[in-house]
Design a protein around this nucleic acid. Sequence first.
RNA 1: GGGAGCGUGGCGCAGCUGGUUAGCGCACCAGGUUGUGGUCCUGGGGGUCGCGGGUUCGAGUCCCGUCGCUCCUCCCA
Length: 421
Amino acid sequence: MIQRPRGTRDFGPAEMSRRRKVEEAMREICHRFGFGEVVTPTFEQSELFTLRSGQSIIDEMYVFKDKGDREMALRPEITASVIRFFVSEMSNQPKPLKLYYVGNCFRYENPQSGRYREFFQLGAELIGSENPETDAEVISLAVHCIRASGLQDFHVRVGHIGVMKSLVLREVQDPVVAGKVLRMVDKEDFDAMGDMFDANSLSRNLFDRITTLADTRGGTEILDSVDDAEAQQYLKELFEILKLQGVEDVELDLGIVRGLDYYTGMVFEIDAPKLGAEKQILGGGSYTLSELFGGEAVFSTGFAIGIDRVMLALEAEQEQPEYTPLDAYVVPTEDAMRKYAFAITSKIRSKGLRADVDLMRRSMSKNLKYAASAGARFAVIVGKEEMAKRSVTLRDMKSGEQTLVPADFVADELEKLLSKG
RNA sequence: GGGAGCGUGGCGCAGCUGGUUAGCGCACCAGGUUGUGGUCCUGGGGGUCGCGGGUUCGAGUCCCGUCGCUCCUCCCA
């Protein structure tokens, strides 16, 4: 038996139906916000990703040499591809550019709950603008996407890495040491940071200010305690606009610090508290990546949603909706009626309804049983008596109620009954 | 990279200290039922007990190894 590769999943029809609904709802929100879809390759030259995230990620990617001896990687994320696409082919488009994507990504990691080697992301990038309203627009889009999925319990945190960066760069003279400090803050490794402070004879006072800042979170009222005047003003405007867009309940969290250099200011995360260990369902922020890929410096703000985790969070908080893949299942009462059954089925399908018909030459009794277990909302009984009157019987599989309808109007009648629920 | 738990028909499981033809529930297929499912009855198909080795007269059961799954830690683009 061939096994499924580690960390990958098969999705059956019922699960795909739920996933597609969530994905569709999010896409719809993206379109409403004026974002257009892009699709980029599933694999890229691996350099694209090491440029963005550093050499160390090579161990966590699926890398391979193609037949022309080029080093390729299955994409571990999609932002890098979108920015590559922008730099090489869309940089002369009118700004701002609003792009979104949905796709599978691959990371060679140890699988666990909410973490897979193949996973799915929906993300958006707003390219060419840098100001509070731009960031607010992107956060608002992100929050609306999550809301559209149906998830109730989620938590939005917004931070600004400029506050921490300016504090560290201002107080630590050696830029190499400053970089180390920032990375340690990112990893919340304050023990190691303390040791390094001692080794470089940096003041205990600065250490305390950094840890305090990393711990600063709360409502907009804590904005007043931000001692970086520029960031303070920026965040004030950002939160104001968010509120006007109906996005409240956003926590300010100055502890969100990304170690990577291209993050410029605002950073944000959303988690679903019900998920436990892997509870982050979305991450984003503003950055400048384009010059890394050989373009001019262009500011962008973007985010990516972990669709798999959103699905897990939805499962954790709500009953799964019943899967009814068929509006009608057509049942001939006897062999002589089978050909009519196909004609009726075709008639129903052509009206856009989901219909199926017996292909196993089963008895009527078994067919009704099958119709129920296959999740058909109605059975359409095609029998001799009805056909004599050019009619068929519709049977509501929930109530058992039956109605005789003219064969020519099956689909219309079904539509009417379906709309009643 | 470190740790924990688990591998027996499609799914969920039982199988006591080793003992003869490996079971149960659900699901699937058929018949009872040549015009009525979500009741019932009967029958049927489907398992090299994850894999390899060892101990033994005999291994699903004990020992060693190995692979896989799940979760935690770690890491996070």
